Simulated scan of single mutants.
Amino acid sequence: MATLSAHHVGLTVSDLEGALAFYRDVLDLTVVDRFSVGGEAFSDAVGLEEASADFAHLDADGVRIELVSYDPEAQSVPTTELNQPGAKHVSLSVDDLDAFYASLADDVSTISEPRTTESGTSILFLRDPGGNLIEILES
């Protein structure tokens, strides 16, 4: 069997520019690439008739985060709760979670204030403009 290595973590968004601004400006990630893909081979590969998509890749300290906006856009998923099968989230770490939380703009939606779990990890979940969950943990 071939050896696999991680390439990126992908999130589908409905508003690429809004999501990109959030990940770049709020989370301070660096944009490393932007591109569009379409055509028959792409449509076949993703299993969507006449699909095309716009992509933005960002660097999160060596982990590539891919934001992708599809045409045609599908209906929203019914729920984004973490305990639902198929739920997803991206996790990023910071040195000082309380300082990060204090620096967030008032319009950034969080699930709660920072909390320390029984395992000793301090975490905070927030949502990007499209509702995707992002876990911020203290390293």
Rank of each mutant, 00 (worst) to 15 (best):
M1I: 12
A2W: 04
A2C: 13
L4P: 01
H7T: 08
H8V: 01
T12N: 15
T12H: 11
L20E: 13
Y23T: 05
D25N: 11
V26E: 11
L27H: 03
R34C: 04
R34S: 15
F35V: 01
V37L: 12
G38K: 14
G39M: 07
F42Y: 10
A45L: 14
L48W: 10
E50L: 08
D54S: 09
F55K: 06
F55S: 01
A60K: 08
D61Y: 05
L67D: 01
V68Q: 05
V68R: 06
Y70S: 09
D71P: 00
P72A: 04
T79H: 10
T79Q: 10
E81F: 05
Q84M: 15
Q84D: 15
P85A: 07
L92T: 04
S93C: 09
V94N: 02
L97K: 02
A99M: 08
S103C: 05
D106V: 00
D107R: 08
V108E: 00
T110P: 02
P114Q: 13
I123K: 02
L124R: 00
L124H: 07
L124Y: 10
F125Q: 04
R127T: 02
D128M: 03
P129W: 13
P129M: 12
G130T: 11
L133K: 05
L133Y: 11
E135L: 00
L137K: 10
E138G: 06
E138L: 08
